[in-house]
Structures are given as structure tokens and as C-alpha cells.
Design a protein around this nucleic acid. Sequence first.
DNA 1: CTGAAAGCGCTTACAG
DNA 2: CTGAAAGCGCTTACAG
Lengths: 329, 329
Amino acid sequence: MHQSKIYDIAGAAGVSLATVSRVINHPEKVKKATRDRVMNIIKNKGYIPNANARGLASRRSTTVAVVVPTLNRASVSEMIQGIYDSANHYGYTIRLFITDNLGSNAKEWGEIVASSVDGILFMNDEMSSEVYSQIKNTPVPVVFVNSVSKDPEYGSVCINNEQSAYNITKNMIEKGRKKILFITTEHIYTVNIQKEKGYKRAMEEGGLTAEIIRTSGKVNINEEDFRAYFDSGNLPEVALAVRDSMAISFMNLAQKRGIKVPEQLEVIGFQNTRYAILSNPKLTCVDTPIYEIGNRAMSQLTELMQKPEETKPINEVVENEIIWRESTR
Amino acid sequence: MHQSKIYDIAGAAGVSLATVSRVINHPEKVKKATRDRVMNIIKNKGYIPNANARGLASRRSTTVAVVVPTLNRASVSEMIQGIYDSANHYGYTIRLFITDNLGSNAKEWGEIVASSVDGILFMNDEMSSEVYSQIKNTPVPVVFVNSVSKDPEYGSVCINNEQSAYNITKNMIEKGRKKILFITTEHIYTVNIQKEKGYKRAMEEGGLTAEIIRTSGKVNINEEDFRAYFDSGNLPEVALAVRDSMAISFMNLAQKRGIKVPEQLEVIGFQNTRYAILSNPKLTCVDTPIYEIGNRAMSQLTELMQKPEETKPINEVVENEIIWRESTR
DNA sequence: CTGAAAGCGCTTACAG
DNA sequence: CTGAAAGCGCTTACAG
């Protein structure tokens, strides 16, 4: 089947291609009668403009790049879903890039830029200076998703991780808990460092000793580390984990040893992914509204792409709350 | 910063643009000395060809569309990761489409086609005749992911759901279990219908009565349905659920009522997503190697895109096995 | 092995 | 309000 071209439509409608193009891109500039006639033919023939030609001629592709470190985390897919719904609303299409070695690989960012996108939504686990220097001079707007931008050139959308961690920790301290364990990633993730800061600040203010387990992102390694922790005779009153999966692993392991949750041990996650309601007991979480974060990042990016003069990149902080469930009392 | 163009490279190297283009696309056609000189300049200037111009001129975009119904399922993100890794290997970039109303909306498929892709990887929950008629006459190859193609025009990659369900059911029957409950979706999903068939066939052969719960994809609704089931005094020996999340919900609810898993009740999922090892006890699963399914689908698509004459679409069936964990004895 | 030239399918000032 | 024409940045037969 031959995809019809703009020439075909113009021919069938008895107008020039310029007019067909206008009907599609600036309908208000075309007389209603002409417009309706052309529109009808477009519909009948199922004509859809060739995206490459359009992008080349207009220098706009109505495509944005979404750059994430992995897809193997529930939080990332929820974020992309948020981005997608917003992109769809604004008429943008998504080009997906999964890469976690941006700091070391300048070629990759160049490929993203050259792939003809009008803007980039960027999620990176560690916003190191290498990463910043690599994305320097990107010719299209970039918005950071789920991390705060330290450079006024880029917008960002995230929650206040430091404050959220502080709040939940303080909340538990006020309830009288003293032995509060913090479980985080071994690897340096920007968001987790912020969470750790908040936790430490609250513990310090409460005159309590911070206790931290640093472990991997992999469930089987988590379990080894947690087992070792329990084997040494440790039992915290509260475990606060930067990821739901870690919280759940920890909780499951404790329960297998006969520790009652939440009676003897309270467990709290810091994401509120889909995992949280599939655990037993259901996991109390500091909510990270990652769908909304993705959604708003795409909105901001749209503003930046469509009104570059009037819009300045901003650091949006999304409000979040604690979702109390069964793993706390 | 000014992105350099092919003209800039040609100028700097003292050759024509044709030669620069050849260095990039057909390096073997260029004398080594020239090639090296041009390559160096390309590297220094960080030149990357404009994707739109390239796509327009060559009629190939090295982009494939990945069409999925949602991102809110662990299985879908694992599949996309599999697709991505393969696409990356073959030099393709991914354009992501999330849409679950393809049957009703002809416009959407047209947009996917017009978005300038060289091929389409298509995952759809219900491969209805409306869907088939909609994708009819697609000018680029289409490969179905995780569902079998009934039309020789399209390739497909999936497991044998019917046989897998039959096998696990038969396996449990041979172990002496008689009351085997099948938990599936209310909504018509092609893969789940196949699983149901296999389950029924095994039950029939074993002279046992099939018992089926049809419920929603949402955890809170699942729970209501399961609660009602237990409230009526039911207790199966085995529960086999088409999705891990359902299996886990069912198991958790049972345990809250004091039912011992796996002693009194064995539970089996039919996906083996990341959820499976976060449950307590860990979930026995019929593995659906969804990463590999995505991976192989992209490989097949690449063949179809690059050697359209020599390659015929095929229905690949991926082998799968049962992963025995703690939720069975 | 290399260059000149046509063409991919659009958009958009510029005239009228 | 509409058309003729230039141009977007490449690729690829076609010559040589």
C-alpha cells in the first residue's frame, strides 16, 4: 500500500502543497471552505505527514527523549507512564534511551541529541560533575526528573527527599522509637544521599545514634546482608529503607525469624511503588509521587520547548505524604 | 553551540559531502587515507548526522516502534528492557507507544506508522479481529511480542501458554492434588485464555472439576474477590494465578486468615516477575521469560527489516520452565 | 575511489 | 487567503 504524500492531497483537493501544509499546521490561516475540503481528503486518504520530512523542514520533531538508567525498577516505569500521558496530551512522541554510564561516555549523549528531539527528560542516579559537563551545551531544553538541578540552565522536578526523610524519622522519634535503622544503597545515588542526610539530621536532633546498612540493589544480596545483620543479634524498632524492595526483603526476613511486624519491628519504605500493597503486612511508605513527577516534568519541558523566551527553567518540588499501612503501628 | 553539519566536515576535510556520507554509511567504499582523515574530523567536531535528514533521504530511520498496552506491569518493563538491549545491539533506537485501545482507534496505528519507523514490535492484550484489520497493510514489518500471530504476514515470539498451564496443572495433579483453583483476569487477554485452556484440559484429563475465579487487574479488587471466596468457606489445595500479583494477593490474604502456605495451600504464579522473590514465602512460578521474548522479537524484527527478501516471519516459541520456590511443597 | 546533482517530503518566508 | 520557490541535511545512483 502506497502511503499518500502531501502532493497527493494537494492534487486531489486542487490546491498547492503549501495550502495542505497550512491546513495541518496553521489551520486558521486557511479559508474555511478550503480547509474543510482539504481536511476531508486528508481523512479519507488517511494521510499522515512524514515525520522525518516534517522534522527536517521545521526543525521540530515533536519528539522528546526520555533518558533513564534502567527499566528494572517499578519507580522508573511509573515515572515513564506519567511522562507518556503528559507527552500524549501535548502531542509529543517519546524516544526511549536506557543508559547508566553517561558520566563515562560522551558519545551517548551526542547520539541522544542527534536523534532529533525537541527536548530531553533526564533521570540519572548520580548527578555527578561528569554528567553535568557532558550535557553542557545541549541545544534543546533538558529537565531533570526526580533530582534537583544545581544548574539554572536546567529545570527539575522532584520531592524534597532530605526533608521527607527528616520528617518520617522525626515522626518515629516522637512516637518514642529510639533504635531506628536506615537501609540504603551501597552505590552513590543522589536521591538516597539526600534521604540519608535527612535521617541523620533527625537522629542527631533527637540525640540518637544513626545506624546504617549499605547494600546492593539486588534482592539476593540484600538478603545476605540483612541475614548477617540479624545474625549479629541486632533488632531495630524501626527500619526505614530507601527502596520498597529493600524494606520488603528486610521485613520478610525478619518475619521468617519469628519477629512480629509491626509489633516488634516497624518497617517503612521510601517510594510507594506497586510492591507496597503486595507485601504482607502492607508496607507503610513515604510516598514518592513518581507518576506526578514524570507528568509535571513533561509539562515543564513542553513550556520550555514551546515558549523558550518567556519560560525559565525552574526547580519544582512536589509535595508528598506518608502512607500509613500495616507495617507500622 | 552550533551542531556541525555534513558540509562542515566536508569543508574541513577537503572532500565532498558524498564522501563524508560514504565514510559514515559505507566506509569500505572509501580509500583508507581519506576515510581516516574524515573520521578524525568527525570525531573532533563531534559530528553526528541529523536523524531526520538521514531518515528522509534513506527512507530508513533505524528506529523501531514499541507498542504496549501499559507500563504499569512489571512484565511489560522487563520485556521492553529485553527489546532495548537487542535494539541497542543492532543500532536501533526506540519510539515508545502506550495504547490499549487499538481495536477502536484506527488513527493511532496510522500515527505509529507515520512516525517514521522501520519496524514495529507489538504487544497487545487481546489480538482481536479488529486489531488485525487495523494493522493490515502496514508498510513495515510487524512482530508480535508475547502473543502468537495467526497471520503469516507477521512474526511472533511467545511461550506456549496453553502447554505450560497444562504441564503445571498436570504436575500438581500427579502429586495428588485435587482441588486446584485457577485465578485469571475478568478481562479477555489472549495469553490468559490460552492458560485457561491448558488448565482445563489437564483438569478434565484428571477427572477433576475446574474451579475458576475471574477478577480484575487491580489489587484492591482482587482482594475483595478473594475475601468473598474465602468467606464462602472455600480452601483449595493449590491456587494457580495467571499473574504473580494475583498469586501474591491471594497468598497474603490466605495467610492473614491463618492458612499455612505451602502446608495447607500451595500458590503458583504464571510470570516470574520481580514480585516473585519479594513475597513471603517466595512464589513458585511458571516462568515466562519475558526479557528473552522481547530480546528475540527484536532480533527477528531486525532480520525482517534488513533482509526483507530472504526472511520470512516466523512464530517463535520460547522454552520455559517451572521455578520451584517456597510457596509449594 | 570521488564528485556533482537529484531527490527524500515536508515547512515557511515571500509575493501577490 | 493562496501559490511558487527555496531550503531543511542528508543519501545514492550516475559519471568519471
